[in-house]
Amino acid sequence: MAFVLHTPETIKQAVRLQRETGGEYLAGGTVLLVRHAAKPIDGHVISLQGIPELKGIGYRGPVLRIGALTTFTEMHKSGLLGGHFKALDEVSRIMGGPQVRNRGTLGGNIGSNSSAADAVTALVALDAVIRREGNLITCIELSDEKVAASAFAKVGRRNAMAVSVANMAVARMTDGSYRVAVGACAPTVLFCQKTSAVLSSGGTFDEAAQALQSEIQPRTDRWGTEEYRRAVCPNLLERLLAEVAP
């Protein structure tokens, strides 16, 4: 119960407060306040919830701009993520549970710094641009001109409210290349460079699956084993490639 809460109303104020206090940013709170419940946070917390500039989703030309404080429910309900950005729409539809999607934000998922962050896997595959002001994530941009089709899938201990044992997103780009990203199978969400290169140059599925095995670095943890993760990743790749096929 010990932290001091700040409630700035502009991005500028938030960045200045963070610089002055060294505090942590609070977006939807579905990660930070869970940590606070386990071990009370000392020092300063800077809530971003009162900053209208950080909210909203909409097109500017061919670029879809998603404010960092946009919740997963808002993203899914906007109807703007169907079609080629389906990977992120699927994350918005299934991540956590309803109450978490109502509160959790896209910027917060990135800032949570988790190797199993579902949205980050989708954003890496979609070649998203993440804009910042100082050290604050302000918005995420996706381009119609880059992505032709995309898909996302996760495997967890149960469907709802479960941390991903493995997640994957595949995007087929407008220039014919592929981008594959995997979460929870390496110390960070991983852009699978070799796998993507094999698929982009017309390689077979077996060659791509082999490249994938050479890139992922899964470990056994409380959610799943290394062996299981190695077995499930090619299956996810096969399923997602079928979904994004021209």
Binding site: L5, L26, G29, T30, L33, V34, Q99
Partner: peptide, 27 residues
């Protein structure tokens, strides 16, 4: 649970369901 997992504390905040154990009263 107090950690946003069980949903027992669900309330509506501006008409939207949230886990009130991981919301701040001040906000």
């Amino acid at each position: 649970c107090g950690t946003g997992d069980c949903g027992a504390c669900t309330v509506l905040l501006d008409g939207v369901s949230v886990n009130s154990c991981i919301c701040l009263a001040a906000l």
